[in-house]
Design a protein around this nucleic acid. Structure first.
Lengths: 334, 334
DNA sequence: TTGTAGGCGTTATCAT
DNA sequence: ATGATAACGCCTACAA
């Protein structure tokens, strides 16, 4: 085993209390002993045990991050943002991959409970009652990242409704009137952000007096593969579409990919706009127009909130960040 | 605060020792007391503290994972694989983003040391002496994932040399003789996997009696952006290239993107093959040929190794997994 | 300025 | 089958 505070104390001819004070910069010791103790620490390469500290301080300097997948760019950006502020404040993150339908969520919650994490961020996930109840029992600060909930939990979100409205309006103002939308699964809707995106789409359409046809909205899931599938489906039901609003960029990339496969040229034959503005968009063929939701910023915001809550033991206000249309080459006038 | 084992003991009229035994299925108690204790546990919603357990058992059921970035698909696949086996064995992972040049590596190593992690996986990173020395002092099992090292550390790797050879041969057998390669940074070479990939490329070329020109290898970095830059650079120095071997798929995607931008058609004007076979390849325009290195499998293998090492306190053999050419539409006969 | 001792929540050893 | 109690490594009154 590694050295303990006792070893240091003994070696420096002081008590463990003194070593502890020096370690934590608490004052109450002469410079001479400080130097001596610091020397011994260096010599022994002593490093305090976070475990033992955790036991006395009730602080583990660890937060949990629940994500539904690890491979989407969105999540990657979230993790990057959270990690960066966590590292700044000297905390680390336990990444929990809950998988689709959240099959591992409850198990992970228990694990995190046992690990006595300081706080929890849940990203892109529907906060079910079961989860919420358990977290309340855990008595640990929680922030939702890109996820609504019916419970009183602070969140960081984009304004999905307005962002979807902007995307749709962009299509319309480019002369399109035969619009299709590809959205996520209806079943994952509750508290997800699919509803507002669909609503924004519908609202823009009706604001511009375009007749709405329910068949022009296709519900699938969220990956590139799903986008491909949904696009083909949508095409089957609507033969005269000239523009597609994909609820997220992964779906949009799927549309691009399927269009290529089908010999449909983007944007000549059909315009496409995505949402989220993940890094990949600008490297697509053609570069995919999208709506930037500043995910990195959202993630950092959420992380700062959670650490503030941990530090000050206080409630936080939710916040909604702004979005921005990013025009590239996948949309053209009709 | 939450309930402790003492609360349970008191409430059940037994000693903490008995509760502990029941909690850990150690036997040595009657069914009656077991039932009673379990009842109280349920009633109180008691959950043992992993912190306290860690202190006595010297086991935290947590491993650290060091990654150079969070946004590449490669890393995402690594994390997914590691997380899945970690979860199986009831452990969690602390994800450490070391950033380029590993500027945060030493800090993270200290953090992990303090947290008393059970084991460590380092992915896609050059294991510098400084890191190695520190880890030896930490006295914690280590496995390298997709990274060579000059130190005696078990690793899980692909055969980069042969994989690169296969990719290049594929290009040559499609009639190409004006080949270019885009590789990673020379400075990150030591112990990285760039060397073998370059060597494999060179070897294939010479095996097929094609004259080698050093200008046909461009050294950049590893992202899509870098791929774009490097490709343009390469084109500047070589005007008659008909095929490109990109050292990884991100670079390959960059090539595709740059080609589109420059009005160069792939594969009509130029063939491109990448490496790693990340998920995105098949959705590119055109779908990017690549060499599959089964990263998910590698990651799982590495994770299993680390847990075995933790469990049995034993050494492990390194292993090299096989690769496979994946033909898609970015390469055509010349 | 410094030391002593009890406590944090478990586990494990030794009795009973 | 069960209970006391020391130990894990650190912090923090309280005392000196």
């Amino acid at each position: 085993m590694a050295y303990t505070i006792k070893d240091v104390a003994k070696r420096a001819n002081v008590s463990t209390a003194t070593v502890s004070r020096i370690l934590n910069d608490l004052g109450g010791y002469s410079d001479k002993t400080k130097v001596k103790v610091l020397d011994v620490i260096q010599e022994l390469e002593y490093f305090p045990s976070g475990i033992a500290r955790g036991l006395t301080n009730n602080r583990t300097h660890t937060i949990g991050v629940l994500v539904p997948n690890l491979t989407s760019s969105l999540i990657a950006e979230f993790l990057t943002g959270i990690e960066s502020v966590a590292h700044e404040v000297g905390s680390s993150i336990i990444v929990c991959h809950t998988e689709s339908q959240g099959i591992k969520t409850m198990k992970y919650l228990q694990l995190l409970h046992e690990k006595r994490i300081d706080g929890l961020i849940i990203a892109s996930t529907v906060l079910k009652k079961e989860y919420y109840d358990y977290i309340v029992k855990m008595d640990v600060p929680l922030v939702l990242l890109s996820a609504y909930s019916e419970f009183p939990v602070p969140y960081v979100m984009a304004n999905d409704y307005q962002a979807a409205y902007s995307a749709t309006k962009h299509l319309i103002q480019n002369g399109h009137s035969k619009l299709g939308m590809i959205s996520g699964n209806k079943e994952e809707w509750i508290a997800g952000n699919a509803i507002p995106r669909v609503e924004g789409f519908k609202r823009a359409i009706s604001d511009f007096n375009i007749p709405i046809d329910d068949r022009c909205i296709e519900y699938g899931r969220f990956s590139i593969e799903d986008g491909i599938k949904s696009f083909k489906q949508l095409l089957n039901q609507n033969h005269d579409l000239t523009a597609i609003f994909a609820e997220n960029d992964e779906i949009g990339i799927g549309v691009l990919s399927a269009a290529f496969e089908l010999g449909i040229s983007v944007p000549k034959d059909i315009s496409v706009i995505g949402m989220d503005d993940i890094n990949l968009c600008k490297f697509m063929t053609p570069p995919l127009s999208s709506v930037s939701l500043s995910h990195n910023e959202m993630a950092k915001k959420a992380a700062k909130m959670i650490f503030k809550m941990i530090e000050t033991n206080s409630k936080m206000e939710s916040c909604i960040l702004s979005h921005q249309l990013v025009e590239r080459q996948s949309v053209r006038s009709h």
